[in-house]
Nucleic acid binder design. Structure first.
Length: 494
RNA sequence: GCCAAGGUGGCAGAGUUCGGCCUAACGCGGCGGCCUGCAGAGCCGCUCAUCGCCGGUUCAAAUCCGGCCCUUGGCUCCA
């Protein structure tokens, strides 16, 4: 069965035929650690996560690299805010940690590498040097620019014509460039106050003086340009030629266009076979951005709704479609997740009951499991259609409910297959975390009972019945629950 | 202005690559019933779509072709 994958460069879905199925190279692009991540970022992460999970499940060997851009004017622009630190590196470290935490909270499978720009400056300088030597780039005033007219295919990804493009970069740069669309590979000096302050929060005092990290290079002290880092890191940690490049739709131009130009000019090879662009998450018809407020940060969303609902939400529209975020779509995602989870739990309960037997076979259930597997796989093979894949699991949920409702002698084998389908497809591929109810209920019940005992104990203490209170504390201790009284009430450890 | 991607029921969202199994999936919502001490969950049935507009090709079009309208993204950092 053939996997199909879309490609922005050709504008079509294409058969996926990696050079080496044992080593499929995937690069997920575009993470600048200058602020808390919001749900729009999470959509890209979750979608590329599900893609790589699916490819692994389908038998490919996958190497997945996701960059962390920790050198950027927008990071400099946050210097001094909210005690983030007064250097670019300190601000970047803070948000890098926060992004890693978000990714863990979302149950993302770990990428093989999360390379950071700050640790790849030597590779970046080498790559720029190659481009200069090959005549694709030129130095001017201590900066280095890519000569767009030297690269014939420039504009092929986004369908742009070089001479119709608006100039890139600030006016000061334009004077140094041979063509207005040329873009910087290396920028002389640090970040100027003007550049930093254009991105700076109005509530913060404007920066004076030059800021940001700089590195020594053959062209003098300076910083990497805005696009070169992805080429350098992809080539370092994957190869000159990769299979899949994933990124947000807003990066098609100029970022990915420039990535192609840099990479292919340097290596002479096709950089990425498939350019997948995740469409944007929108609220009220507008692109989601940090300015819309805290509610949309990944950490808040996960805290409020849990990772499974957030993942279900972000997987409820295929990546080729833009997605709308609203109370209604969150509510739908919640219902879909809970419906799946309940069916999973019912199947797990039924299979573990004495009513589950080896002999009775419910053909309807068994057919439904096979159908769900087939539809799920077909959906994912057809360009990672996650919405249709979830729908296949929901139909399985209906079949499970019908079986459990409709008989007192459960089909052990059929239920076992259903549970396995939920766990492998919903769990391993979609990254949803099902709970069979066995452990969790016991834990939360225990917590509730402990709280109850603590309430009683507190009443005894207030009434001065300390013998009774101490007795309760001792007996909890004997059960492995230690009680410590604080100014804010009792806390427990166990 | 230039480039690109989209417009499917009350909502959301598959299907469009390779025209017919689309009398348009799955889910949410609404209505009725079953079950139930109540509620929830679940089950069954029903409800809501001339697939943006106009024209064309075809035995057959949501799917192909042409024109138009609208929306969104990019052209400045952006997933």
């Amino acid at each position: 069965m053939t996997q199909y994958v879309s490609n922005t460069r050709s504008g079509e879905q294409e058969a996926f035929e990696p050079d080496d199925p044992e080593n499929v190279l995937v690069y997920t692009c575009g993470l600048t650690v200058s602020d808390d991540a919001h749900l729009g970022h999470a959509r890209l992460w979750v979608q590329s996560d599900v893609m790589t999970r699916w490819l692994s499940h389908a038998g490919y060997g996958v190497r997945h690299v996701q960059n962390v851009t920790d050198v950027n004017e927008k990071i400099v622009a946050r210097v001094g805010a909210d005690g983030l630190g007064d250097t670019e590196a300190a601000v970047a470290a803070h948000y890098t940690q926060s992004v890693i935490d978000d990714m863990r909270a979302l149950n993302l499978a770990r990428a093989d590498v999360y390379p950071r720009v700050s640790e790849h400056v030597p590779e970046i300088i080498d790559l720029i040097g190659d481009l200069v030597d090959a005549g694709y780039a030129y130095e001017a005033g201590g900066s280095v620019y890519f000569d767009v007219r030297r690269f014939e295919e420039y504009g092929a990804l986004s369908g742009q014509q070089v001479d119709e493009l608006d100039p890139q970069g600030p006016d000061a740069e334009q004077a140094e460039k041979r063509h207005p669309a040329d873009f910087a590979l290396w920028k002389a000096g640090g970040v100027s106050p003007d550049d930093a302050n254009t991105h700076r929060d109005d509530e913060l005092p404007p920066l004076d003086g030059e800021r940001g990290q700089t590195w020594a290079s053959p062209w003098g002290e300076g910083r990497p340009g805005w696009h070169i880092e992805c080429s350098a890191m992809a080539m370092t940690h994957l190869d000159d030629h990769i299979d899949i490049h994933v990124g947000g739709q807003d990066l098609v131009f100029p970022h990915h266009e420039n990535e192609i130009a840099q990479s292919e000019a340097a290596s002479g090879e096709r950089f990425a076979d498939h350019w997948l662009h995740v469409r944007l998450l929108e609220t009220d018809g507008e692109k989601m951005s940090s300015s819309l407020g805290n509610f949309f940060t990944v950490s808040n969303a996960v805290a409020e709704r849990g990772p499974n609902v957030v993942r279900m939400l972000l997987v409820s529209t295929s990546y080729t479609q833009r997605q709308t975020y609203s109370e209604a779509t969150v509510s739908e995602a919640t219902q879909r997740w809970e419906r799946l989870q309940r069916a999973y739990e019912r199947a797990a309960d039924a299979i573990d009951s004495v009513a589950a037997h080896a002999k009775p076979a419910d053909d309807a259930l068994r057919t439904a499991v096979a159908d769900a597997r087939g539809e799920f796989a077909a959906a994912m093979r057809a360009d990672f259609n996650t919405r249709a894949a979830v729908s296949a699991l929901l139909e399985l949920a209906s079949a499970v409910n019908r079986h459990v409702d409709g008989t007192d002698t459960y089909d052990y084998q059929g239920l076992h297959d259903a549970v396995d389908a939920f766990e492998t497809l919903g769990g391993d591929v979609l990254g949803l975390q099902f709970d069979d109810g066995a452990g969790e209920d016991a834990v939360s019940l225990a917590d509730d009972v402990i709280d109850l005992v603590l309430d009683v104990r507190e009443q005894e203490r207030t009434a001065g019945n300390y013998e009774r209170a101490d007795d309760l504390r001792d007996r909890l201790e004997a059960l492995g629950v230690s009680v410590e009284d604080t100014d804010d009430g009792a806390t427990v450890r166990r």
